[in-house]
Design a protein around this nucleic acid. Structure first.
Lengths: 69, 69
DNA sequence: AATTCATGTATAGCTTGCTTTACAATTTTA
DNA sequence: TAAAATTGTAAAGCAAGCTATACATGAATT
């Protein structure tokens, strides 16, 4: 899974810490998500997408093993 | 968090087992999601939403503690 | 009434998301 | 260039998602 978190964050000139605070997780969590170390939970994904005013599907890009069809 | 999994599943006359097989988890997992025992992972949420041809946001309803605003 | 199908409960165990802390490296700014 | 801000790495530990298995209940069909 890839995410556009870093991209959107930089576009809007928001630091990892600001984002972390906004969605109520630690900076470590943001770093790990951005670097692909692990995947966000559904609720966190929702919070992040909402913060950037986009849908979850727009923010997180699933790859083929993660699809059904 | 609430989900429309059971609702959509019944509407389309799909059994828990069929859904479980379709998204590659056990029936237990579907039961637990439907009964609110725990929340789906992002990838599983995506698979389920995709199976029913809806967005994640349409399938999963977040409550206020899970929002930012 | 007996069988079958769909749903539900319970539990032990593995994996992974997330936290916390501490420290290192890189970039920015004064 | 020195200080400050931002990003990164590492590791131990807790909590939660998910599996696997086994058994119970209820509805539907014959």
């Amino acid at each position: 899974m890839q995410t556009k978190i870093a991209q959107y964050r930089k576009e809007r000139k928001i630091t990892q810490e600001e984002l972390a605070d906004a969605v109520n997780v630690t900076r470590q969590t943001i770093i790990s998500l951005e670097s692909g170390k692990y995947k966000a939970s559904l609720v966190l994904a929702h919070k992040i997408a909402q913060f950037f005013q986009v849908t979850i599907e727009e923010m997180f890009i699933f790859d083929k093993e993660e699809e059904n069809l």
